[in-house]
């Protein structure tokens, strides 16, 4: 992509991060850490990679996305809002009574959500099912899913991957947000899923490991994913949990708690500064 394009995407990703902070702060709960680590790849998917139409969220020929790590809903909502699925101003209704922005993605109430998730390990199965269905229907739509690196401890994930390669689901792209943190601590200390890339390969996927915050690397990997035939594609995204907000970066306790007023101000200031630098 051109440097102009890159800058535009980076600006959007920064706005998405602001949306994550604003919505979780307004909700006084939620999951900022894992939302921030997924912000870049989600931005790329919805602004450059996926064939979608915000005016017609249920368009039959769209590409599909499943947020298997459903607790990162604030990131997905912020991206969908930036992309025009619903007003950005609604982000602050997150988790409130009457809001269509549920604590975890809910496909029956939110435009643009292809699958309800929140129970870890299940989204990837649904994504594989979508990929199989689209193949049966001879459609060229693609399916993308993002899992947490703690989430892949669920046995179901590996059942889904076995299924995906067995049925040669080359229209499926499985991304692992490898921030090395889960709730109880470092992923390798709680219950190591490593080596993730080797495991994905052993389950029949074509795999690469990239910097999950580098939009150029994301673009290149997703391009190779589209070219790959006969097997599903796996991308291990090396990321930083809490990316973009200094005091949240690599700090496990920011998994599931919202910034208070003071922390909110600091986070927004940092992000505004990043935005200014980008917009210069």
């Amino acid at each position: 992509m051109t440097s102009e394009e890159l800058k535009k995407l980076q600006i959007t990703a920064c706005k998405v991060r602001m949306g994550i902070i604003e919505s979780t702060h307004a909700a006084a709960c939620g999951h900022p850490g894992g939302s921030l680590s997924s912000a870049d790849v989600l931005t790329y998917l919805y602004f450059k990679e996926m064939r979608v139409n915000p005016q017609e969220p249920n368009w039959a020929d769209r590409d599909r996305f499943v947020l298997s790590k459903g607790h990162a809903a604030p990131a997905l909502y912020a991206v969908l809002a930036e992309r025009g699925y619903f007003p950005v101003s609604d982000l602050t209704t997150l988790r409130k009574v009457g809001s269509y922005l549920q604590g975890h993605p809910c496909r029956s109430v939110t435009p643009g959500i292809d699958m309800s998730t929140g129970s870890l390990g299940q989204g990837v199965s649904a994504a594989a099912g979508m990929a199989l269905a689209l193949k049966c229907q001879k459609k060229d739509s693609r399916v993308y899913t993002i899992l947490g690196d703690g989430e892949i401890q669920e046995g179901e994930v590996w059942e889904a991957l076995m299924f995906a390669s067995h049925y040669h689901l080359d229209n499926l792209c499985v991304m692992i947000d490898n921030n090395n943190l889960q709730i109880d601590g470092w992923v390798n200390e709680v219950m190591s899923p490593y080596p993730i890339d080797e495991k994905l390969k052993a389950f029949g996927l074509e795999v690469e490991v990239i910097d999950g915050h580098d939009l150029n690397q994301i673009e290149a990997a997703l391009g190779r994913a589209r070219q790959t035939k006969g097997k599903p594609y796996g991308i291990v995204l090396k990321t930083v949990k809490g990316k973009g907000v200094s005091y949240m970066e690599n700090v496990g306790s920011w998994h599931g708690k919202a910034p208070d007023d003071r922390q909110f101000e600091q986070a927004m200031q940092e992000l505004k500064k990043s935005l200014e630098v980008l917009e210069k």
């Binding site: 909700a27 709960c29 939620g30 459903g70 988790r95 549920q102 604590g103 975890h104 809910c106 309800s116 998730t117 929140g118 129970s119």
Partner: peptide, 8 residues
């Protein structure tokens, strides 16, 4: 459970 919503 509250804010986590129906999935939980």
């Amino acid at each position: 459970v509250g804010e986590d919503g129906a999935s939980h």
